[in-house]
């Protein structure tokens, strides 16, 4: 087990190197630092001095990958590649265009993101599984048919409409919860109700359908027939046998996203003005702050790989037959 985890972590290194190279090529080779400076200073009538000054201020006034004028090890370390990309490996994200420390910002903003994503995931999972269980219990009946029709219908609505509709109905018409915003501590709850509810309603269509198909696949297996033949009640069969076995495919989908919850959701957070990492990213995209986008890309890849490893570990936990070597 330990050796397996160590090996997986070692496997992650070349992948992160690849991600890093890819973002580096995207950000610095396709467009030179000069282009970036021109973009920020306005396209027309920019003096070369202004560009040089912007580059010096933001640390782009050094060669891209190889510093021929420096001595020894500095030939490599005094380059944009080393300063901006290699340092990501030690989670040193550098500074944003407005001079703030990206690492400190991320540490601060990850909590609101988590506060909204974690309840959304848990509530969503519970409700989806319950509803899917109900539909599976009434399989091949009108409840099943109509459940699927409603689920497909709800799946076909863009998540943007759920957010807009939720804000309009609950906040504007009935004035139950604030339309957007965030607060520290326990006061955050009233701001979180609506986003969590919207995430739940928006995800229930695809979630229910997905879990229903998993349950139905399990129900068709031989051990279920054996359980019924033993004389167990249908509900016992469903909860004690089917649900536990269905956990394996459910986990594959769920565990991998848990680390990514830190990243928050771009759309939800910006609609509800929640100061999390999602709105941080969207602001960076809109103000074209490449440093932040690069940091988020790297962080996202790291978290995804962590999620994959966690998935494997969780398999051994729900399915004792799986041995990791």
């Amino acid at each position: 087990m330990i050796t397996y985890i160590i090996r997986r972590v070692l496997y992650a290194i070349p992948i992160l190197v690849g991600v890093n190279l890819l973002t580096f090529i995207l950000f610095f080779v396709v467009n030179t630092p000069d282009d970036m400076a021109r973009l920020h200073l306005g396209m027309k009538r920019v003096t070369p001095e202004a560009i040089e000054k912007w580059k010096a201020d933001h640390g782009y006034d050094i060669p891209v990958a190889w510093n021929a004028s420096a001595e020894g090890i500095q030939k490599i370390s005094e380059t944009i590649f080393f300063k901006k990309s290699v340092r990501l490996f030690v989670f040193d994200f550098g500074f944003a265009d407005d001079g703030r420390n990206i690492g400190a910002d991320i540490r601060e903003r990850m909590w609101p993101s988590l506060a909204i994503a974690m309840p959304s995931l848990i509530v969503g999972l519970l409700v989806n599984i319950t509803v899917a269980m109900l539909i599976a219990f009434f399989r091949a009946s009108y409840i099943d048919t109509w459940g699927i029709i409603v689920a497909v219908g709800m799946m076909s609505i863009s998540s943007l409409f759920y957010i807009i509709g939720g804000q309009f109905l609950l906040s504007k018409m009935f004035r139950l919860v604030p339309i957007s915003g965030y607060d520290e501590g326990i006061n955050a709850v009233k701001f979180l109700v609506l986003p969590v509810l919207v995430a739940l309603v928006g995800g229930i269509g695809s979630g229910t359908r997905w879990y229903r198909s998993i349950f139905l696949e399990e129900i068709g297996k031989d051990y279920v027939r054996t359980a019924r033949a033993k004389g167990l009640a249908e509900l016992t069969v469903l909860f004690r046998h089917v649900l536990r076995n269905a956990l394996v495919p459910i986990l594959t989908g769920v565990v991998v996203v848990i680390p990514l919850l830190f990243m928050g959701s771009l759309v939800t957070e910006s609609f509800f003005s929640i100061p999390g990492l999602g709105s941080y990213t969207i602001d960076a995209i809109n103000s074209q702050d490449f440093g932040i986008v690069r940091a988020m890309v790297f962080l996202g890849s790291v978290l995804y790989i962590v999620g994959l490893i966690l998935t494997d570990i969780s398999y051994t936990w729900v399915d004792p037959r799986v041995r990791l070597r």
Partner: peptide, 8 residues
């Protein structure tokens, strides 16, 4: 490629 979040 898949380890980079799609939107980003």
């Amino acid at each position: 490629l898949s380890s980079i979040p799609g939107v980003l």
